[in-house]
Design a protein around this nucleic acid. Structure first.
Length: 340
DNA sequence: CTCCAGGGATGAT
DNA sequence: ATCATCCATGGA
């Protein structure tokens, strides 16, 4: 029950966990409870330090590990190591942010998202969760993730709380489609199960795909049921550390069209994709995540100014939307408008 | 109540 | 290659 505490340079735990890249961390007191792989974790941030409590894996401290009598090869990595790796505390954030293009939209997002890191998620967990994400809001993806964990995962205790691991591909594969639908998966139940079957067989080995170049990795991912270019890019970015991968969802499409091509009709999806791959550079995935989080949190709440750490507290007000706003183009495209 | 969401698969132009 | 439609669901 020992806390491990260590200093961290540039990190915002809450922004990192609430930016729509991972969906299972729950706020408890001043910190968050969740899992890293099959280990239960509680983390909290205080100023420039991070405190972590891990259970269910190896003993937390060197003394406790020695006392356990386990051989060193049986030990999971120490707490600080696993936590640092998961939260990607080794990413050179200054350098990454300095590589972003210098334009007003990007600068606002970079300022708003200071300390947000792209974490290293377990591959299957990330893949499965994003298969469940299609046409779902972030809040609901969290519900689905929680339901899958509670029903099919293994229970772990951390502190006074309880969390569940994400179920293995074998476990999902042997669940019935109906059991999965009971986790609010809807039409995604079928593709999640089909992909779970493939991943749990020896036909595809997600770990070995780490050695592939981006193009081949993306192609392999897209061959899985329920995985298209968007979800493949999410998995590449959040689980394979391909920091160039640039997922384009409805929010990012709005940002690109309205902020970068405000008066150009006829930008096809293909053109947006080519633009984003070249313009945002070698860490485009980071740029994308900053644009996404900024648009969704700071700009996505009508009636709330762009400054705002208080934006989250206000519910949306449909009447407050700027329905009639047309920034000198008809826009439409079923894309609503980014306020501000 | 209605609206819409970190899309994908399929079939028609 | 681009576009239309359908697929389910519940938070806001």
């Amino acid at each position: 029950m020992d806390f491990t505490e260590f200093a961290i340079p540039e990190f915002d735990l809450e922004k990192t966990l609430n930016s729509g890249q991972v969906f299972h961390w729950e706020k408890i007191g001043n910190g968050f409870a969740g899992t890293i792989g099959d280990r239960a974790v509680y983390v909290e941030q205080r100023d420039e330090s991070l405190r972590a409590l891990m259970e269910g894996g190896a003993p937390a401290t060197p003394r406790a590990r020695r006392a356990s009598g386990l051989a060193s090869h049986e030990l999971a990595p120490p707490v600080m190591e696993s936590v640092s790796y998961y939260f990607a505390l080794d990413h050179p954030l200054q350098e990454i942010c300095a590589s972003f293009p210098n334009d007003p939209t990007m600068n606002a997002a970079r300022d708003f998202c200071r300390g947000l890191r792209i974490i290293r998620q377990p591959k299957w967990e990330c893949l499965a969760t994003f298969i469940c994400s299609s046409m779902k809001q972030v809040a609901h993806i969290r519900q689905i993730s929680l339901a899958l964990r509670n029903r099919f995962g293994d229970q772990r205790k951390v502190g006074s709380g309880v969390v569940h691991t994400f179920p293995s591909p074998q476990r999902i594969a042997r669940a019935s489609e109906n059991e999965l639908r009971e986790c609010k998966l809807g039409y995604r139940a079928k593709t999640l199960r089909a992909t779970a079957r493939l991943v749990s067989s020896d036909e595809c080995d997600l770990e070995s795909w780490s050695a592939l170049p981006d193009g081949d990795l993306r192609k392999n991912l897209c061959e899985l049921p329920g995985v298209g270019v968007k979800i493949a890019n999410c998995v590449m970015l959040f689980a394979y550390a391909r920091l160039r991968a640039f997922p384009i969802d409805i929010w990012i499409e709005r940002v690109l069209r309205q902020r970068y091509f405000p008066r150009r009709k006829k930008m096809t999806a293909q053109q947006l994709r080519e633009f984003s791959e070249t313009y945002f550079g070698e860490h485009g995935g980071y740029a994308q995540q900053y644009l996404f989080h900024h648009a969704r949190i700071a700009l996505g709440k009508p009636g709330v100014g762009r400054d705002s750490s208080t934006a989250l507290r206000f519910g949306r007000n449909d009447k407050g939307r700027m329905r009639g706003w047309k920034g000198e183009q008809q826009q439409e495209h079923k894309l609503s408008v980014l306020p501000g």
